[in-house]
């Protein structure tokens, strides 16, 4: 057989194999209980209060601590490094497979509106691209990735470092019949570490005179997330947790960004609750980075937050 024909045949067999492999990955990822998109479908939490946002709520709000004091059930849907489009799709998928919660606590901060911080993690939605809404959001937020997804398996190959382990773990969960996530209430406790992020000091994270730049796509998906919740009769509360006081000096337009968030909140008729001025914000010992607490800070903040939820949200709605 001529070499040209053989090369062509390799590509045909490869195309078919990749289609099959794509199905195997789809299935494996949808069985992985440690992935929130899969977990909220396979084991619906169906709670009263949903906590949502990027890593700050993920690592700083413990449903177990809240539930004890508020008397209602809660689930932490937050995901590390996620932006509002990411949050929007997770909320959409949660609502698709769960009873709508009564309250949504959504983390918003000036960093959330600046695309320099956090991102849209397209890989999280790869097994769900057959859903037209997921498809459209991924296309809008990561066109570089989306344009190759028509090639078999490319939706996985593009970010394959994110998938191989998760697929294997998914099959392990499937064959062992596991129904619970490693973190069943969605909360991931902060790792034990001394003050410092990868860059060392917060001044490196916030260069002197860091000016936040609001991003229209972020604002658009913040509004869409609020509206999606309201369409499902959920009471939405935007909130900001304490920020290390020392860092504020490096952010000259933080107040301007806060007023921008307040304007959006007012337009959408949802409250924006700030915990920025708690006394703990001045104590570096509670933080691992400018926006994240350690376990000690977390307990203090969850206590304050629980009291706020009980008094201003639960009791008022009764």
């Amino acid at each position: 057989m001529k070499t040209g024909i053989k090369i062509l045949m390799v590509f045909v067999v490869l195309w078919v194999s990749l289609l099959l492999l794509e199905d195997l990955y789809d299935f494996g990822l949808k069985q992985n209980q440690n992935i929130k998109m899969a977990s909220v479908k396979n084991s619906p939490p169906c709670t009263d209060l949903l906590v949502h946002g990027p890593c700050e709520p993920l690592w700083m709000i413990s449903p177990a601590l809240l539930d004890k004091q508020t008397g209602i059930s809660s689930y932490n849907l937050a995901l590390s490094h996620s932006d509002f489009a990411d949050n929007y799709l997770h909320l959409y998928y949660y609502l698709k497979h769960n009873r709508a919660p009564t309250y949504l606590l959504l983390y918003v901060t000036p960093e959330s509106l600046d695309k320099h911080y956090n991102t849209f993690n397209s890989y999280r939605f790869a097994p769900y691209l057959e859903d037209s809404l997921v498809n459209a959001v991924v296309k809008e937020n990561d066109p570089d990735y989306f344009k190759y997804t028509w090639i078999p398996f490319m939706k996985y190959a593009y970010y394959n470092k994110r998938f191989n382990f998760d697929v294997l773990q998914g099959y392990k969960h499937y064959f062992s019949g596991r129904k619970n996530a490693y973190y069943p209430d969605g909360f991931e406790p902060p790792t034990k570490r001394a003050w410092g992020n990868h860059a060392g000091e917060f001044a490196e994270l916030y260069q002197e005179n860091t000016v936040f730049k609001p991003d229209s796509l972020r604002e658009k998906y913040l509004v869409k997330t609020i509206r999606l919740a309201k369409e499902n009769h959920i009471s939405v509360y935007l909130y900001e947790s304490p920020v290390l006081f020392e860092a504020l000096a490096f952010q000259p337009n933080r107040a301007e960004m806060i007023s921008r968030i307040k304007t959006i909140a007012a337009q959408e008729q949802v409250p924006f609750v700030q915990f920025e001025h708690l006394a703990m914000a001045k104590e570096k010992k509670y933080f691992v980075s400018t926006l994240n607490f350690n376990m000690e800070g977390l307990r203090l903040f969850n206590d304050t937050l629980s009291r706020f939820i009980r008094k201003n949200i639960v009791e008022q709605s009764q």
Partner: peptide, 8 residues
């Protein structure tokens, strides 16, 4: 390459 290569 597809399964373990770096694309993105």
């Amino acid at each position: 390459i597809f399964v373990f290569g770096v694309f993105g």
